[in-house]
């Protein structure tokens, strides 16, 4: 790379505009013709292009520690989340036991499957957010909405992200969770199915469990049993026993 060639301010401006896609029509054609037939211009162009990439690369490198911190953060949350399940479900089991004794009268008017759903369903608690780490990050803001039961707002934000991250299992899982909490089991089932298409997803077990509960809410007992049987969940056997009674 020859750093000694002269590049004027106007030439830099023109090349920057071309690189940014701001040249159109005749201007763009003239630029490209020059690029094809003028070696000196080609050298200037190559140098500015490489400088632009080098400057961006340096900026991207500065962001990597932050990206990594967040990746680690989510990884830990995913594992802590699984461990917390055991504690949370132990508590939930006790609560459910109390509810099943004290609140049974309230369930009499519900169909059997829905009673099971009511007894076993607790919304996914969501992921922790660190706004300092994630300023302006739409996902985290929506997570706050989700955790404060503002499910429609969370869905609106996450669906926008999903439009450009179609294969993201985290988004599919929490969109489905929000739909479930928002009393829309049909949409939730479709979302959990998308999570389950990714066999390596950390949300597989939770998606199976909640899909089973959503099917239960819809009165589809056999399909619910099939989903719950595949889930690894501490309440699995208890629920299956009740469903098969």
């Amino acid at each position: 790379m020859n750093n000694n060639i002269t590049i004027t301010e106007q030439e830099l401006e023109l090349i920057d505009n071309y690189l940014a896609g701001r040249l159109t029509g005749a201007d763009k054609a003239a630029f490209e013709a020059q690029l094809a037939g003028n070696e000196e211009w080609k050298a200037k162009f190559s140098q500015v292009k490489l400088l632009a990439i080098g400057i961006q690369e340096a900026a991207l490198r500065e962001q990597l520690p932050q990206f990594h911190g967040e990746a680690e953060h989510y990884k830990k949350l995913a594992s802590v989340k699984n461990i917390n399940w055991i504690k949370r479900l132990s508590i939930a089991a006790s609560v459910i036991a109390i509810i099943s004794v004290l609140g049974w009268v309230l369930f009499f008017k519900q169909p059997a499957e829905e009673k099971m759903y009511t007894a076993f369903y607790k919304p996914d608690p969501g992921l922790s957010t660190e706004m300092g780490l994630s300023d302006n990050y739409i996902f985290d803001r929506a997570m706050v909405d989700y955790k404060t039961a503002n499910y429609k707002a969370a869905l609106e934000s996450w669906n926008k992200l999903l439009a450009v991250n179609a294969g993201n299992d985290t988004l599919h899982y929490f969109i489905a969770s929000a739909q479930m909490a928002d009393n829309n089991p049909t949409a939730a089932i479709a979302g959990f199915d998308k999570v389950l298409q990714n066999h390596q997803s950390v949300f597989t077990n939770d998606a199976l469990w909640y899909k089973g509960l959503a099917l239960l809410k819809k009165g589809k007992k056999q399909e619910a049993i099939a989903a719950i049987e595949k889930a690894e969940h501490s309440q699995k056997q208890t629920l299956l026993l009740k469903l098969k009674e």
Binding site: A59, Q63, F67, A71, K75, Y137, F139, V164, N168, V202
Partner: peptide, 26 residues
């Protein structure tokens, strides 16, 4: 949708780069 995502990555959209990193690192 993917073309939009790719364009965002090319334009150094922070949420997109961050998500790309998070998703692939594990």
């Amino acid at each position: 949708k993917f073309l939009q995502q790719l364009e965002a990555i090319k334009n150094n959209s922070e949420p997109h780069l961050r998500e790309l990193y998070r998703y692939n690192y594990k």
